[in-house]
C-alpha cells in the first residue's frame, strides 16, 4: 500500500510519534501507526530514538524475573517443543466424544436381543480412547453394565480399529488410578470387538482410573495409551 506523502513531513512525523509514545492514541490509530512504522523506516528510527530517550522513566526499577513457565510457553508458541497429542485437552474431548458415540452404537447393536426389546440402551460409565504415538491404531474402551438392570454385572467392551502390530504381539490392558497404582485388566486379543466381565476388584479400581495403557506382555512396550474419563468428566 502506498503511503501518502504527508506522512514524510518531519513535523507530522514528530507529532505522530509523540502521540504514539505517550500512549494517547486510540487503538485504531495505533494500528494505523503500526502499519506506517513498518513502511517508513525514518519513522521507526524516530520512535526508537524517543523511546531510548524516555526509557529511563522505567529503568529505575528492581529487576524481576518472570516465572519459568513463561519460557516454556514461548517455546511452545514457537513450536519448538510441541505439546504431545495426548496432552491436548481438546484432542481428548473431541476424540472421546466421537468414539464414545460410536461405541454406544456398537454396544446398542451388540447387546440388543430381538427377544429383549426392553433393554435397548446401556449407559456407559467410563470411556477411554487409546492411541499410539507412531501408529494409526486406536482402541476404544467402555465400561458399562451388561444390561440396564441395576444389578447387572460390569463389563468392559473394547473396539479396535486395526491390529497394533503385524506380528500380533500379545498385550494386556493396564489401568492406572488417581493414586498412581496400576492394575491389569487382562490380555487383549487382536479383534475388532471384544467384551469381558469385570471382577469386583477391577470395577472398584476403574472408578479411580485416570489412564489406560495397552502394554506388550513381552518387553513392556507401551503400544497404545490414553486418558480414562468417567462419563461425568466427559460431559463437562
Amino acid at each position: 500500500m502506498r503511503v501518502p506523502l504527508r506522512y514524510y513531513d518531519p513535523k507530522l512525523q514528530r507529532l505522530l510519534i509523540n502521540h504514539y509514545v505517550s500512549g494517547s492514541m486510540s487503538y485504531r490509530a495505533r494500528r494505523r501507526m503500526s502499519s506506517l512504522l513498518q513502511q517508513i523506516p525514518q519513522l521507526e528510527e524516530q520512535l526508537l530514538m524517543v523511546e531510548a530517550q524516555l526509557q529511563s522513566l522505567h529503568t529505575n526499577q528492581v529487576q524481576v524475573p518472570p516465572k519459568a513457565q513463561v519460557w516454556n510457553k514461548i517455546e511452545a508458541q514457537l513450536g519448538w517443543h510441541s505439546v504431545r497429542w495426548w496432552q491436548k485437552g481438546n484432542y481428548w474431548r473431541a476424540s472421546s466424544g466421537a468414539l464414545a458415540l460410536s461405541l454406544l452404537l456398537v454396544l446398542t447393536l451388540q447387546i440388543q436381543d430381538p427377544s429383549e426389546v426392553s433393554s435397548e440402551y446401556v449407559p456407559i460409565s467410563y470411556v477411554g480412547i487409546l492411541n499410539g504415538h507412531d501408529s494409526t491404531t486406536s482402541l476404544a474402551a467402555a465400561v458399562h453394565r451388561e444390561t440396564d438392570a441395576p444389578n447387572a454385572p460390569w463389563m468392559m467392551t473394547l473396539h479396535l480399529t486395526q491390529p497394533w502390530s503385524e506380528s500380533n504381539e500379545a498385550a494386556s490392558l493396564w489401568i492406572t488410578d488417581d493414586k498412581g497404582r496400576k492394575l491389569s485388566m487382562g490380555p487383549i486379543q487382536v479383534k475388532d470387538t471384544q467384551q469381558f466381565q469385570l471382577s469386583d476388584t477391577q470395577w472398584q479400581f476403574i472408578q479411580g482410573a485416570v489412564w489406560m495403557e495397552l502394554i506388550a506382555d513381552n518387553g513392556g512396550r507401551v503400544i497404545l495409551q490414553g486418558q480414562c474419563l468417567s462419563l461425568k468428566q466427559w460431559k463437562s
Binding site: G23, E44, L47, L48, E51, A52, H58
Partner: peptide
C-alpha cells in the same frame, strides 16, 4: 545502528502493552 537491543525489545514490549 538505530538502537540498542534493549531499547528495541523494550519498544516492542511497551507498545504491545499499550495496544
Amino acid at each position: 545502528n538505530k538502537s540498542g537491543a534493549y531499547t528495541w525489545s523494550y519498544t516492542i514490549a511497551r507498545h504491545l502493552a499499550l495496544d
